[in-house]
Amino acid sequence: MNRELALRDALREAILEEMRLDENVFLMGEEVAEYDGAYKVSKGLLDEFGAKRVIDTPIAELGFAGIGVGAAMNGLRPIIEFMTWNFAVLAFDQIVNNAAKTLSQSAGQFSCPIVFRGPSGAAGQLAQQHSQTFESWMANVPGLKVISCVDPADAKGLLKSAIRDNDPVCFMESELLYGFKGLVPEGEYTVPIGLAAVRREGTDVTLVSYNKMMLVALEAADELAKEGISAEVIDLRTIRPLDYHTLVKSLKKTNRMVVIDESWPFAGVSSEVTYQMQRYAFDYLDAPVIRVNAADTSLPYAAPLVDAYMPNAAKVIKAVKEVMYVK
């Protein structure tokens, strides 16, 4: 049986279930306990698990991320919530220099089973500092795994996998889509890390995306269908490790690909996808892979500038027509 759940509630169920299963799992971050979470993902968790396991921190991202790393090295399984990944920049030393490297530095003696989670990406007119994506930053780092998804069922199953995973995982959600609803199965299940999902089957072009840009990709696919263009839509879900097998399989069928990616273009997720396609499916490509990224600029405040910055269905449709050589 499925029921309809918002993304925030699906995420909460994942945390709740894993905390019930494993005493060593705890949640730490700003406003996660008494305030019920800045976006209400942790609503009610303090009541069930108490202040020992649901811990409000001062505003000190570097400090509490590092406390999480130390706790993970010493046998616990922390979930560290960042109110947004933009604030996690303060904690990158602990994520990049420590969580990612502990296993290697200790030659396998100290693992770091930790989840760093929070929303990534633009969320309306929040201007330069509150609107960035961090998937490609984190995915550049060996030792980390990176998940970015908004489908409630996937988000629940993937967060459960992330909490159980013995490697450090960066988990990226969406501020705008915490209320986004989807069908979520009843009962226990997980979704494996490292597998993309085909959301819509098609034959003429493959659209690849993740996180809230999936909505843009699906909207574009609907519009294209009206024009007789059949788009296959793939949700990456996991950014590192990237499931390029699913992409190559789709490309062999459609021979054309557009990547819709809210990260900046330079060395972004779309760059990696494009590299993998030319490397492993060169002979199947009937056109260069084209990408629709956020603009190569900071994101300003005013509405027309936000519209110009973000990928949208019109930009995707234009790109699809380009790879199909149609007007």
């Binding site: 020992k52 570097l62 406390i67 130390g70 010493n74 616990l76 220099n97 420590n98």
Partner: peptide, 25 residues
Amino acid sequence: YFGGNGIVGAQIPIGTGIAFAEKYK
């Protein structure tokens, strides 16, 4: 022995977290 950290001061929160885990347990 948790290291041996090459980033100046990075081990201060880490040691705090190691202690956090001891209290937790």
